[in-house]
């Protein structure tokens, strides 16, 4: 099993980094989205490999749906969804490469040279159970904050993405009649 784990780690790591690089190399926005999906699915695979079954599956499922939605947005907004012509939409690429390379080098040196503590603590029998007990116990505040943040996200996303809602039509107090519509139509209510 350890050998299989080693092989899986290397394969997933290569696919993750390769997919990440290809996100910014593809001309097609749709292909870039699926390259990102590949990278993030491999991240989920690495998390599974680390024994976090629940979180790994959550990442895999979440990223699959997220990237499917992202592909739709890509086709909606981007000028070159099919990759029929070469495309480069970058600014200051040398500085970006230098900063990213420096950060990667610094993190790698830190990871390799850091005096990590030796001696491993006991692995929990069921990490999912441990997470559930933490979220429903001492980490309840974190769970409630995450829930409120996700709810706020839903509200903010709808407000930002709605072109004309009832406040635009009826004013801030919702009392303005008739409705302020660009084209008078319907029953004018």
């Amino acid at each position: 099993m350890p050998v299989l784990d080693e092989v899986l780690f290397v394969v997933l790591a290569l696919l993750a980094v390769g997919g990440a690089v290809m996100v910014f190399r593809f001309d097609s926005m749709a292909r870039a989205t699926y390259a990102l999906l590949t990278a993030l699915l491999c991240v989920g695979g690495e998390v599974l490999l680390l024994g976090l079954d629940y979180l790994g599956v959550v990442i895999v499922l979440m990223m699959t749906i997220e990237m499917a939605l992202m592909a739709v947005f890509m086709v909606m907004y981007m000028m070159n969804p099919a990759g029929l012509v070469p495309m480069s939409m970058v600014h200051n690429p040398r500085l970006a490469l230098a900063v990213a390379g420096t950060v990667f080098a610094a993190l790698t040196v830190g990871a390799v040279l850091a005096p990590w503590p030796v001696g491993r603590a006991r692995q929990p029998v069921d990490p999912t159970r441990e997470l559930g007990r933490a979220l429903m116990g001492p980490q309840m505040l974190t769970m409630m904050t995450l829930g409120m943040a996700l709810f706020a996200t839903i509200v903010v996303s709808v407000v930002l993405a709605t072109p004309r809602g009832r406040y635009q039509r009826f004013g801030d107090d919702l009392r303005s009649r008739p409705a302020d519509d660009p084209l008078p139509a319907g029953t004018r209510r």
Binding site: V23, V90, H91, A100, T108
Partner: peptide, 22 residues
């Protein structure tokens, strides 16, 4: 260390995109 280097690589590639893409 291996996982940390992988994390650094993903972070670095992402940073390159976040800084360089229009």
């Amino acid at each position: 260390e291996a996982f940390a280097v992988l994390a650094a690589a993903l972070f670095g590639v992402g940073l390159h995109g976040a800084l360089g893409q229009r």
